[in-house]
Amino acid sequence: MQIYVCLKHVPDTAANITLKGQADYEAGAVKFVANPYDEYAVEEAVQLVEKDGSGEVVLVTLGPSEAVTTLRSSLAMGATRGLLVKTDEKFCDSKTTARALHAAILQDGSPDLIFTGKVAVDTEGSQTPYRLARLFDLPVANEVSALAINDGSAVAERELGAGNREVLEMKTPCVIGTTKGLNEPRYPKFPDIMKAKKKEIKELALADLDPALDPRPNLGKLEPVPERSGATMMEGSVEESVAQLIRTLKEGKML
């Protein structure tokens, strides 16, 4: 089984983002990790290849040279090798991203399955799996929290809200966007981390892959979200503070 996992190199969700200029941030000050939702994708792919007994899991990343560290730590989860399509553009538009991933996979081999995370936590666009599927002319399901692959077909479950779930059926190969609940991503052990250091990571320049690929971020401005300045505290006994809260909320037409 030949599985490709698209992995994004993103700022750690716990990191503070220091903005600079109109639409940029200080990348040097931030710790980067694999996009948290992509970890479910890596884990699922590794488990499928382990169960199948043959094949490989190839990680594909579009990002800066530093993304090699993110690829290494995900290779330690059991993936076979990595492809890094290099760009210095921090906010690559989603159309270019999908085209770059598509071209890199196509050049490398023939996918039986393609995984991505359901959304990247930096740009929050949620569209790469769909655009990839369109480029490959394959079925796609996103926000998948349960998956069964059997003889050329896939059955995926996605949450609809209010605890309801949708069961989708499609043929393989297909593109699956993963989310929490699908599996428990493993913590790599020391020997796995050592092994990952020797795994192959092939680097490609975006322009070499396809000269027509030109990232055009459509980002005009990036601003910090104004933080609340601190709570107005309700005072007195439990009953008194509750009464005060209800009064305050009513005045503000929140109730």
């Binding site: 394959l138 079925p139 809200g161 209010a162 605890g163 309801n164 059926e169 043929k171 297909c174």
Partner: peptide
Amino acid sequence: AKVAVKEIKTSDDRKMDLTE
């Protein structure tokens, strides 16, 4: 159609969805 909805699994208690 490349993907077909086979079934909707509804939860027992009909609660309001969080995002809504």
